[in-house]
């Protein structure tokens, strides 16, 4: 009853053109693990579906001067199998690999997880902690933004009309760095984070020299908790520093009571996960 168009361009320029021409009714299709579900539920009724899986840049992982450029449509399974990426950014990779099930991993992309703009998206707190940047291309050309500025609210992004997330960049890792992502779910899999926490650290001679913390599912958008990072920097990651960072995480929470958790529980768990994720990240940093 509703006409729907499907296009599968091979260049980003064509994709941008197709999205722009759709005049607000266009949706990007990468793995489709959110879009197709929304279409089945009737919450998404796109006029034009722009499949980006034929665009080479969006489908590859490149190593760039120690860092990585990851195409927005690369699937979780491919990311999980990349040896160098998993070594440099184990927390980012484990976060992406937590999305959905084994079958979902074969299709779902980190770019899609990002653009779906769920506050509970698993990949995002880890990418925020990693200081990842997002490459966006639109009618006015390319721009690069910090990942934490992409979300505007649940289901909403700061993307302008016609703009597409092309990929994201992870910086080079010096010696003594480590990251980790933990989420709390009531079950052991097939669930959505009640709280998610990503921590990225650099440790030199036992002292933390850099730290970033991303928190998910505790506010309308994934948070960069700068105060938590500050509480860790300069410390030896002792209990006192971890508790201060946990307190900063609890203070940053602006959660809601819903079917997945209460305000009280989410706030408490944000602190618990910070400590546990920081311990894993520290161990990984020391193990290098």
């Amino acid at each position: 009853m509703v006409d729907m168009k499907y296009v599968a361009p091979s260049t980003i320029d064509e994709a941008v053109g197709a999205i722009l021409a759709a005049n607000g009714t266009g949706r990007i299709l990468a793995g489709g693990t959110d879009l197709l579900v929304q279409m089945r539920l009737g919450t998404a009724k796109p006029g034009v579906i722009v499949d980006v899986k034929n665009i080479p840049e969006m489908m590859r992982i490149e190593e760039t001067a120690g860092g990585f450029r990851i195409g927005a449509a690369v699937s979780g399974a491919i990311i999980g199998e990349h040896p160098a990426l998993g070594k440099a950014w184990p927390g980012v990779v484990e976060a992406i690999n937590l999305i959905g099930s084994k079958q979902i991993q074969g299709r779902a992309s980190a770019g899609g997880n990002l653009c779906n703009a769920s506050p509970a998206a698993d990949s995002v707190p880890a990418l925020v902690a990693a200081a990842a940047t997002v490459t966006i291309q639109g009618p006015k050309g390319r721009r690069e933004i910090p990942v934490e500025t992409l979300h505007a609210g649940p289901g909403r992004t700061t993307l302008q009309p016609g703009e597409i997330v092309v990929g994201f960049t992870l910086p080079a890792r010096p010696l003594g760095s480590g990251d980790a992502y933990l989420r709390l779910i009531p079950r052991t899999e097939m669930d959505i984070a009640v709280v998610g926490c990503g921590v990225s650290l650099i440790v030199a001679n036992g002292t933390c020299t850099a730290a970033r913390v991303g928190l998910g599912a505790v506010a309308p958008t994934v948070l960069l908790v700068e105060a938590a990072g500050k509480a860790l920097i300069g410390s030896r990651l002792d209990d006192k520093a971890l508790e201060a960072a946990a307190a900063a995480c609890r203070a940053a929470c602006k959660p809601i009571d819903d079917k997945r958790g209460t305000v009280q529980y989410r706030t408490k768990i944000a602190g618990v996960l910070l400590k546990r994720a920081a311990a894993i990240a520290a161990e990984r940093a020391g193990a290098r």
Binding site: V194, T262, Q264
Partner: peptide, 11 residues
Amino acid sequence: MSPPRLSAALD
């Protein structure tokens, strides 16, 4: 005895 409810009882 879901995690939020059990946690509240433990607290």
